[in-house]
């Protein structure tokens, strides 16, 4: 009976997840501009994105992105063009290559080390107990 209840819960959850993730409607142009602007820094601010900032410089970047979206460029093409114009620091995400890649790799390594440490501790405890 309990097994059945669990099975039912899993099936319902799976169906809901499938329905909730297969909706592949293409984003509208405005949504794409929003999405790209959120990953780009407002040139006049420190950490605020071009989407969130009210500064005129941010409005310029948004207009530039909108122009390129209308011209049919891809997200990456647009970001590359912005980097060419403003430099690497325009992107709110650090580059994946070079020293900048460390910021992506280090946390993963730290987490793996942490989990490995805990796993090792449990192994030792088991050996001691035996």
């Amino acid at each position: 009976m309990r097994r059945l209840a669990w099975l039912a819960a899993l099936v319902v959850a799976l169906i809901a997840l499938v329905i909730g993730t297969t909706d592949r409607s293409n984003p509208s142009a405005a949504e794409r501009v929003d999405h790209i602007a959120a990953t780009v820094r407002c040139p006049a601010c420190r950490g605020e994105s071009a989407r969130d900032s009210n500064a005129p410089a941010a409005a310029n970047v948004r207009a530039e992105i909108a122009r390129r979206v209308r011209a049919g460029q891809s997200d990456d093409q647009i970001r590359d063009a912005l980097v060419a114009a403003y430099g690497d620091s325009i992107l709110l995400t650090p580059p994946r290559s070079g020293w900048g890649g460390l910021v992506w790799v280090l946390p993963v390594m730290a987490l793996v080390c942490g989990l490995a440490g805990v796993a090792f501790a449990f192994r030792r405890w088991r050996v001691e107990a035996a």
Binding site: S49, I90, P94, W99, G100
Partner: peptide
């Protein structure tokens, strides 16, 4: 400090 180049680590990261 390492490269003398400025980068930004922001909300998306």
């Amino acid at each position: 400090a390492l490269t003398n180049e400025q980068i930004t680590v922001g909300r998306p990261y």
